[in-house]
Nucleic acid binder design. Sequence first.
RNA 1: UCCCGGAUAGCUCAGCCGGUAGAGCAGGUGGCUGUUAACCACCGGGUCGCAGGUUCGAGUCCUGCUCCGGGAGCCA
Length: 470
Amino acid sequence: MIVTVKIDLDRLYYFDRTYMKETIKEILTRQPPCAVAVVGWVKTTRITPKAVFLELNDGSTAKNLQVVVNPKDFELVQDKINLGSGVQVEGELVVSPAPKQPVEIMARNLVPIGEHDFENYPIQKKHMSLEFLREIAHLRPRTNTLSSAFRIRSTASYAIHKFFQERNFFYVHTPIITPSDCEGAGALFKVITVDTEESCSQSFFFGRPVFLTVSGQLEGEALALALGRIYTFGPTFRAENSNTTRHLAEFWMIEPEMAFFDLDETIQLAEELLKHIAQTVLETNIHDLEWLSKFNEIDLTRQLKGFVTSTMNKISYEDAIKVLLESGREFDFKPFYGGDLQTEHERFLSEEYFKGPVVVFNYPKNIKAFYMYNNDDNQTVACFDVLIPKVGEVIGGSQREHRYAKLYQRILELGLDPETYKWYLELRLFGSVPHSGFGLGLERFLLFLTGLKNVRDVIPFPRYPGHAEI
RNA sequence: UCCCGGAUAGCUCAGCCGGUAGAGCAGGUGGCUGUUAACCACCGGGUCGCAGGUUCGAGUCCUGCUCCGGGAGCCA
């Protein structure tokens, strides 16, 4: 039964605040029949002689809401309503007679809201390449794939905070502008004032050269040695000229740091964190996972359920090298003890040998950072990486060297200036205790959660070499 | 930065051995008994990335450039 649409063309921009309180996600949980009002954007239209079908989406969920309109009434607003336009609908939420959607709205009133030049609207009803969508970063969140990715990003971010807060970690804010280069953890962006321009060797503002942070770890250690358990969650900057699906010049990193934690406890924490995030996304974003699974031709629900219900594989660096050498595989770079794991080695371990995420721990000290805890063998340091199939390293962490003499010696061995690390060394003079932490690359883990293949598609406005348009 | 691949309609793509450009979607018009990326018919739509070269003739072959993508390195 289709009722008449009342169109008030003089009040095209019209809404009542009460309508804004109910999203499509919420409406889809209502018991039909009932009267509802909804605002959203038209995702697709289907016009038949007896009924016009509009699918509406307001961003609250991956699911669209079908609206059924009387064709005669639709004619009155046809030139204002098309793919992408904003509308407001009042009507009756009813059980849908068709199987593809449980409920639909029989429109009693349909009003276009705002302007929309649909003839030039670049978003299509059909498949668009992710490469094309990157060129329209301001419009691509309107697509199913990108909006799903961003909803999952939100869920994951919240899950991370919840995980730590429930375990009595404190969220701390480490500086974005820092004089520390964190021991060559990537090329730095230098921060200067506009006045000094680039010809000046250093900014006079701080009296020393300063950079955008490449890690909050060192500052995080200072806080962990006071507050016990802390985590950071913020943007991180690397000026590497990296052009890959896994690198961004500006990305988001989560860095927990825990006093009185050894390496094993830290690995345990990392595993629980990743599983908590995956579990929360499973519970919160089922429709997004369904869409992304279809789009990427993988079963994300199965992948994530499998991940949260199994124990992560763990292997020492030494054993990992043995596995690689005994695999019979011809690698472009032959693995050897003392060498860093190449991408092809990491992929073999996670994708073929373990067929899942794997923790590799205790790397040789000469390929790792100066601050890592020197193991008793004096060859390896107490560190770990979490490797994930198709993505690579999502976590890198370690127990920190808390013994003053050992740390000081290591700084000298590597030719670093102890004066630069004076405050960091001082943490080892006063109340120094074993402590550990790790860094989780948010965008990389989002690749695992969304099934997408490029970190540029899980952050709204990606920064990478040659690209900072918006 | 290095290696490989690509650039054809608004979008996704086809275009064979060099002979003067094509489909689907999107847009317009009309049709269709409730559709599901609806369907059917018709219409409009192109500096074949840019600049040279070879050739009677280049989207197609060659050179350079620009941009994009994938892989590698570095890393999270």
